[in-house]
Design a protein around this nucleic acid. Structure first.
Lengths: 248, 248
DNA sequence: TATTATTGTATCATTATGTTACAATAAGGT
DNA sequence: ACCTTATTGTAACATAATGATACAATAATA
């Protein structure tokens, strides 16, 4: 779903789009020591869904994914990566989209292109929670962050898509140093450790974690952060951006 | 391309198939200390290509990939995994397929489904070279193994697809212990090390490699292998299959 | 000024990996 | 039979990475 939905709806043959192929994007953010994903809710529906969209017939697939991402977060230059194609026949279920269209007062023909079988390419994005501005469009009620351990009921197989995205993020975390894309510009070592612990779902050893991160040589120490706590103030760090993967 | 090509050719609207979506499979084997891939050559054409195919409109995408793989190697229960979707607009080039069809004496209509833009889902498979039986079909001259460091000229972006597959294999090798799928049933430690060295494209330290492999606890020592060489005979090993990932 | 919690880092322990060395041994030659 | 040769299996030690503990430094607050 994207801003062009009205055109897509009345365009019953899907003219201008690649047929049967969709994009779903798992947009991860990190806030309050919790991993979050950006979800939409549809008007007149209790269904939540991942931001997604379709591919113009003269557009690169990766470019389409970036377009979807930017339309939802108003961010560019974001870490974005394909992770899996969801193509089981059992995904095929025209009911939810039919419901959405009917709720909008539109009665789609039987062979409307949006009611056919779709294969979906899964992407995940890592964004700075504080910079993303969740933007709903005309067919969605809301576009908001939801904590991963408290997700609402999701449309179709979107729950499995999120699970697979998280699994991919987890296994790429150490190898690719992509975690920094989820941090704010400045952060403490505690913040960073908390992010790693949340993604990997396990406690890490503080001393070893700090030693390793500093040893990577991609952190620059800025200043101290007075939190107001009755204890030594932590340093703030920023990461040296040209040493960390952002765009592919 | 698969055995049903004649039907696909005369079926100008692609009835029964998902439109615009294809599968390309990089089938890896290992022989003579070299990585090999299975390639087809088309009749009346100098073009080589990856084994590929299309998805039935009532078939899982992963199942379709397995069907393609089995039709080319006569093997089942093979390690097979999605690795990337190739969806750039610049891939779109109807010329090669047009040439192939014309060479078969078939003049396709302008809007033949096979001449439209395709997005291709890349899979890679790891097979035991000694067990796979390369099988061409009626539109291919040949179906044979080619050494990775001596590939013929390939159709479209198939060369990039192979490169990306190798990159994925390389980065998954240690983590997932999938290398064993490329070995014969019984092998020496030297064979295994040679495989790793070839995939990773670097020399490994013999003592450390052996220690690590034995430490994994997935190898069973069988017997000695008398090679005829004037030296100590190496042991043969087989891997304890229920400890190694094969199918997903 | 004492108390408190947290941070940064040093220190040592443990594990993993790199490196060297060497005994075991299966041909082949004499 | 015995010596030579190349390769294997593994021990032994060196170095690097990680786990675990300890402790000084230090911002609040009382």
């Amino acid at each position: 779903m994207n801003k062009e939905f009205e055109q897509q709806e009345s365009n019953i043959n899907g003219e201008g789009f690649l047929p049967g192929l969709a994009i779903d994007t798992v947009i991860f953010g990190f806030h309050d020591n919790q991993l979050k994903v950006l979800l939409l809710s549809y008007k007149n529906s209790s269904l939540y869904a991942l931001p997604g969209g379709f591919i113009h017939d003269n557009e690169d697939v990766n470019q389409a994914a970036r377009r979807v991402l930017e339309s939802r977060t108003a961010l560019s230059d974001i870490y974005l990566e394909q992770f899996y194609v969801f193509g089981d026949y059992s995904r095929y279920d025209p009911a939810p989209l039919k419901t959405i269209m009917k709720a909008r007062g539109y009665e789609p023909p039987h062979d409307h292109w949006l009611l056919k079988r779709f294969v979906s390419i899964g992407y995940y994005a890592l964004v700075d929670f504080t910079k993303a501005v969740p933007a709903p469009d005309e067919i969605s009620d809301s576009c908001d962050w939801y904590s991963l351990d408290n997700l609402p009921l999701l449309m179709q197989d979107h729950r499995q898509i999120i699970d697979k995205a998280l699994e991919t993020l987890r296994s790429n975390l150490d190898q690719k140093l992509i975690g920094f894309n989820l941090m704010t510009d400045e952060f403490t070592m505690g913040d960073l450790q908390s992010l790693y612990e949340t993604i990997l779902n396990k406690k890490l050893i503080r001393a070893a974690f700090q030693r390793k991160m500093l040893g990577l040589g991609i952190l620059e120490r800025i200043a101290k952060k007075w939190t107001g706590g009755a204890h030594k103030a932590p340093y703030l760090y920023k990461f040296i951006s040209n040493k960390v993967p952002t765009e592919n």
